[in-house]
Simulated assay, not measured.
Amino acid sequence: MDIVERIEQLFVRHGDAPYEGARREAISALEHALQCAQLAEWANADESLVAAAFLHDVGHFLAAEAIARDDRVDDRHEDLALPFLSAGFDASVTEPVRLHVQAKRFLVRVDEHYARQLSPASQHSLALQGGPMDDDQLAAFEALPFARDAVQLRRWDDLAKEPGRRTPSLDWYLALLRDVRERPFLDSKTGIGATSVA
Rank of each mutant, 00 (worst) to 15 (best):
E162P: 02
Y173N: 00
Q137W: 12
R166F: 14
A115W: 03
F146L: 14
L126R: 10
L159T: 14
K104I: 03
A139N: 13
L126A: 11
E182R: 11
Q137V: 10
F185A: 02
E112C: 12
Q137D: 15
L118T: 07
E142A: 14
V110R: 14
H113F: 04
D134A: 11
K104R: 15
P168K: 08
Q152A: 12
R181F: 00
G130T: 11
E95K: 05
V108R: 00
D135P: 06
A143E: 15
L170E: 04
R98N: 10
Q152T: 14
T190C: 02
V180D: 00
P184A: 05
L176V: 05
P120E: 12
F146C: 12
A175R: 04
K104Q: 08
L174V: 04
V151E: 06
M133K: 05
L107N: 02
D171A: 08
D158Q: 11
K161S: 13
D179Y: 04
Q117N: 09
Q129T: 11
A175M: 05
L170A: 06
F141Q: 09
H124R: 08
M133R: 05
D158E: 14
Q123A: 15
V151I: 15
A103D: 03
A127P: 04
E182V: 00
D171G: 03
D134M: 11
E182I: 00
A139W: 13
S119W: 00
R165H: 12
V97E: 04
T94F: 04
R116E: 09
D136V: 15
L159H: 13
L186D: 01
L186G: 01
P145C: 10
F185E: 02
P184Y: 01
L170K: 03
W156V: 04
H100M: 02
G164W: 15
D149M: 05
A143L: 15
R178V: 02
P132W: 06
G130F: 09
L174Y: 03
